[in-house]
C-alpha cells in the first residue's frame, strides 16, 4: 500500500514538473477549465431562473450544485480522465505491454498514471462557488452535514469513474471505442442540474447505474439535511468496483491473447 502511495506521489510530481515546463499552455488550459465551469453555469441558472417559484429551487442553491459539480469533475479530469482517455490507445497501439511488464497492479497503474494538474483550477473555483451559494441560500453550516455531502460526492466521483472505466474497457472488445470518452463526458453533464428537474425514472438512473446525479445534486441535497442514507450508495459502489475489476481481468486476458 505504501509503495503505491509513493508511486502515485512520484507520478504527481512528474506531472507538475511537466506542466511547469509548458507554462503558457498550462495557464491557458487552467483558464479554459475554469471558463468551462462558468459557462456551464449559464444554462443551469437560466433554467432555475425561469422556474424558481415552481420547483422550489433557487439561484443560490443551484450555485451549490454547479460548484460541487465543478470541483468534483475537476478532480476527476485531473486524476482519472487523462488515464481513461489513454486506455483505447494502449489497446490499439499495443502500448499496454509497457504497463503489464511493471511489477505493480496493471489496472490501478493504468488508472492513476497520468495527471493534469491544470484542471485543479476548477476545483478551487468550484468550491468557492459552492461556499458562496451555500452562504447566500442560508444553508445551516453543520460539520455532520458537510461530511455527509462530501461522502456522497466521493461515492459519485468513484461511481462515475467506475462507469467510465467500464465504458473505455470496451476498447478491448471493439476497435473504434475511442469516442466513448466523449459520450461519457456528455452524460456526466447531466450531473450539473438539480435532480428534481428530471422525470422520476431518469432520476433513478442518475442515482444508480449512471451516477452522474451523485456527483453534485445528491450532495447538495444532503447539505440541506434531506438526503437518504449512505449505505445503499456504498453497497452499489462496492459492487460496481468488483465488477470493474472482473471486467479488466476478462478483458485484459483477451488483450494478451490477441497480441
Amino acid at each position: 500500500m505504501k509503495r503505491y502511495a509513493r508511486l502515485w506521489w512520484s507520478c504527481l510530481r512528474q506531472a507538475i514538473r511537466r506542466d511547469l515546463q509548458f507554462r503558457s499552455q498550462t495557464l491557458i488550459n487552467a483558464v479554459a477549465s475554469i471558463a468551462e465551469l462558468v459557462l456551464g453555469l449559464i444554462p443551469v441558472l437560466i433554467l432555475t431562473g425561469t422556474s424558481a417559484a415552481a420547483v422550489a429551487w433557487n439561484g443560490p442553491r443551484t450555485l451549490v450544485v454547479v460548484g460541487i459539480y465543478g470541483a468534483c469533475t475537476g478532480l476527476m479530469d485531473c486524476f482519472v480522465a487523462p488515464n481513461l482517455r489513454r486506455i483505447d490507445g494502449y489497446v490499439r497501439k499495443g502500448e499496454l505491454d509497457l504497463i503489464l511488464i511493471r511489477p505493480v497492479n496493471a489496472q490501478l497503474f493504468a488508472t492513476l498514471r497520468w495527471m493534469e494538474p491544470a484542471e485543479l483550477g476548477r476545483v478551487v473555483t468550484g468550491l468557492g462557488l459552492a461556499v458562496a451559494g451555500a452562504h447566500a441560500a442560508h444553508l445551516p453550516f453543520e460539520a455532520g452535514l458537510v461530511i455527509r455531502a462530501a461522502i456522497w460526492t466521493a461515492i459519485g466521483f468513484a461511481g462515475f469513474s467506475v462507469l467510465w472505466a467500464n465504458l473505455v474497457y470496451l476498447a478491448f472488445w471493439f476497435e473504434s471505442a475511442e469516442p466513448i470518452n466523449e459520450v461519457a463526458l456528455q452524460v456526466r453533464e447531466a450531473g450539473r442540474y438539480p435532480l428534481t428537474y428530471f422525470p422520476r425514472s431518469v432520476q433513478f438512473v442518475l442515482a444508480t447505474v449512471v451516477p452522474a446525479g451523485l456527483i453534485a445534486a445528491v450532495p447538495a441535497k444532503a447539505l440541506t439535511g434531506t438526503a437518504t442514507t449512505l449505505t445503499t450508495g456504498l453497497l452499489l459502489l462496492i459492487a460496481g468496483i468488483a465488477l470493474t475489476i472482473l471486467h479488466w481481468e476478462v478483458a485484459s486476458r483477451r488483450y494478451s491473447s490477441a497480441s
Partner: peptide, 12 residues
C-alpha cells in the same frame, strides 16, 4: 429532459 421537467412543474 430538464426543460420539459421544469415546464411540467409549472415553469413558464
Amino acid at each position: 429532459l430538464v426543460w420539459r421537467g421544469a415546464i411540467a412543474q409549472g415553469s413558464t
